[in-house]
Structure formats: C-alpha cells, structure tokens
C-alpha cells in the first residue's frame, strides 16, 4: 500500500455565500464520501480544511497576502489515502464532492523520505 495526497481545489469564495442548510448538506456529502473511503480501510489521515487567508513568501522578502483572488481555484483542503496504485487512488477520488461544484482533486503519490 502506498500513500497518496488528495488536494482539493475549487472556487471556495462561492462557499461563503451558502445558507446554513446548504452548508450542512455539503458537510454531509463530504463526510459520506470520506466515510466510504474509511470503510474500505483506505483512509490514512482524514486531513483538514485550509483557511482562505494566507501568505506567500518569495525570494528577496517579497510577501504576498492571500486570499489569492488572481486565481479562480484555491486550495481548500487535503486528505491522505492508501491505495495500491495511482489508478486505484484516482478511482477513489471520482466520488469527491468538490467535483460537483466545478473543482478538482489533484492526486500525488507521497514519496517517504
């Protein structure tokens, strides 16, 4: 088994406009999806959400503040899953709720140091 990092990207500024009911329905979708992966014993680390505020540090003390309005898709969270292959990991990612709102899942195999 190898570990793969799932990175969720979408236009999360839309999320802030949701009603409480919509937010609850969205949480359920995510938990049902993660629960399904965990039920297959393929969840390594449920990961976390990422706040939409942040900073980017570049050479020569160049600091840019978030939110990163110049890009439509921002990183919203991550999860670590276990799978035998990149193909299997991709299969697991196909049910991710982020896809339903026009976002995407980037899958990267973790190379253990």
């Amino acid at each position: 088994m190898k570990n793969f990092l799932f990175l969720y990207r979408a236009d999360f500024s839309l999320a802030a406009q949701r009603s409480p009911e919509e937010m609850q329905a969205n949480t359920k979708k995510w938990m049902d999806w993660i629960g399904g992966i965990a039920a297959q014993n393929k969840l390594a680390d449920r990961g976390n959400r990422l706040e939409q505020t942040g900073m980017v540090i570049r050479p020569n003390n160049v600091v840019t503040d978030g939110p990163f309005t110049e890009i439509k898709e921002t990183l919203g969270g991550y999860t670590v899953i276990q799978a035998n292959s990149l193909e299997e990991a991709a299969e697991l990612a196909k049910g991710c709720p982020v896809l339903a709102v026009g976002g995407n899942v980037e899958i990267r195999e973790i190379s253990v140091l």
Partner: peptide, 22 residues
Amino acid sequence: ILQLYNHLLTVEYSPIAALNRT
C-alpha cells in the same frame, strides 16, 4: 448514526464498524 460511523471510521477502522456504517 451514519455520521457518527463516518467519524468513528476516520478515527479507527474495524470491519464491524465498516459493515454497520454501510
């Protein structure tokens, strides 16, 4: 019950929890 099983499984996997969750 479903959401509690979802949470339980993210903390600790067991075959029985996976079956009950389903």
